[in-house]
């Protein structure tokens, strides 16, 4: 797509029943492409990257402020930080990996959770209004990080032969279907799983953003002659969708980290 198409194509004069005869400016892939804000040495820096950068700064700054000078009797900020940290630790890591094995992975999972959550929340923040994770590269890198961690932990824990036994779900008692199971498990664990791990987060935010843009644009588009009540319905739907998205954003961050933990659980488990 060319550079001049990259801004959200929205024509203010485009209304239903108006004479200029333009149709509904439906959102599409062009809603996800941005003009570069600045070019630094041939490197195009756009809004998505700015939001991603802000996200990491926010996460680091928040936990720095909360735990930088940790006290035995926590202040307000430290209380919030501890609640968030403990939610991931007790609710996700301990539930899947257990207390003894899991403790080592808590910092990674906490950072992943809050990084993803804030990246998603940009979707409903005025002026930002774009979920960073709806650009496929971001979930891909995060899923690749988890995948590499999973592979290396499996190697470390089970050795070379053990790795393949673990990955292919080797089990002698299966008998004749064992080769088939091994092929399916191998493909599923090494290729399909990281793919769906990334796609799940990406597609949720992608679909959510499309829906928000559609109802928002439709509210303006319908605001003409006798269609005004329809614009009202569309506006109410926008509000409802924003509330629903707030829920989905948290759930997706939770699911991403929960899945990362359950993959690690497979790596840490003793094979039989």
């Amino acid at each position: 797509m060319s550079a001049d198409q990259t801004q959200l194509a929205f024509d203010w004069s485009c209304r239903i029943m108006s004479d200029n005869g333009c149709g509904f400016p439906a959102p599409g892939l062009h809603s996800f492409l941005f003009k570069p804000l600045a070019t630094v040495g041939g490197f195009e820096f756009n809004k998505v990257m700015l939001l991603a950068l802000l996200t990491s700064i926010l996460v680091v700054a928040f936990f720095w402020a909360a735990f930088g000078k940790a006290k035995v009797i926590p202040g307000k900020l430290q209380m919030v930080g501890e609640a968030g940290y403990d939610f991931v630790r007790r609710g996700i890591v301990y539930e899947t990996l257990g207390k003894r094995e899991g403790e080592k992975y808590v910092p990674l999972m906490v950072s992943l959770f809050f990084f993803i959550w804030i990246m998603n929340i940009w979707s409903v923040i005025p002026l930002a209004q774009f979920p960073v994770s709806s650009v496929f590269a971001f979930p891909v890198v995060l899923a690749a990080l988890v995948w590499i961690l999973w592979v290396s932990v499996t190697f470390k824990r089970h050795g070379f032969v053990g790795f393949f036994k673990n990955v292919t779900g080797y089990d002698k008692s299966l008998g004749g279907v064992l080769p088939l199971v091994m092929v399916i498990e191998f493909l599923s664990n090494l290729i399909v799983r990281p793919f769906t791990h990334a796609v799940r987060l990406f597609a949720n935010m992608f679909a959510g953003h499309l829906m928000l843009v559609m109802f928002t644009v439709a509210s303006w588009y319908l605001l003409n002659s006798w269609m005004v009540p329809a614009a009202g319905v569309s506006f109410v739907m926008t509000i409802v969708m924003i509330l629903f998205e707030l829920f989905v954003q948290a759930v997706q961050a939770y699911v991403f980290v929960l899945l990362a933990c359950s993959y690690l659980q497979g790596a840490l488990a003793e094979h039989h």
């Binding site: 539930e95 796609v199 799940r200 597609a203 679909a207 759930v251 699911v255 929960l258």
Partner: peptide, 18 residues
């Protein structure tokens, strides 16, 4: 936790469809 995990596995198919 398990409910949301299963929900995520199922939902992935619909999302790939989108």
């Amino acid at each position: 936790a398990n409910q949301i995990l299963g929900f995520a596995f199922c939902e992935a198919l619909a999302l790939i469809g989108i």
